[in-house]
């Protein structure tokens, strides 16, 4: 590209050729998708169920009923998660009721299963 051609192109309004625009478009798209992926997960976005043998992950915003190895029935409903049925002796997990905040944990100690709402937050709870 000669100096004259470059001046000409700027005068005509576009310093970019077609390939440049396609490429920039791709960059913008990539960045947007990355940011969405990262920031979109900021709230308690998913439910992680950990058993002695496996780890299961479910979105918190989609209603579901999960049979965990025949020991617990975990229900995700209206952005909350709770243990509906447990075959454990103390039923503390059932008595915990529902949780919806990132970091909240429901534990079934006798079965060694935890249900955690994941995500990033400044909130913690006791009691």
């Amino acid at each position: 590209m000669t100096a004259a051609e470059r001046v000409d192109r700027i005068k005509n309004g576009s310093p970019f050729n077609r390939l440049d625009i396609v490429f920039l478009g791709a960059v913008v798209l990539l960045v947007t998708v990355t940011l969405l992926l990262v920031y979109g997960g900021g709230k308690g976005a998913s439910v992680e169920i950990t058993t002695p043998t496996q780890k299961l992950t479910y979105p918190l915003d989609k209603d579901a009923e999960v049979d965990v190895e025949g020991k617990l029935t975990v229900v995700i409903k209206d952005g909350k998660v709770f243990v509906k049925d447990a075959d454990c002796p103390d039923k503390v997990c059932e008595r915990t009721g529902a949780v919806n905040k990132s970091g909240s944990v429901i534990a079934c100690l006798p079965n060694g299963i935890t249900v955690t709402v994941t995500g990033s937050s400044d909130f913690a709870e006791v009691g």
């Binding site: 709770f82 529902a98 709870e125």
Partner: peptide, 10 residues
């Protein structure tokens, strides 16, 4: 006692 989908309040 909190059961089922009831959220235990703060």
């Amino acid at each position: 006692l909190t059961y089922g989908e009831a959220l235990r309040d703060y």
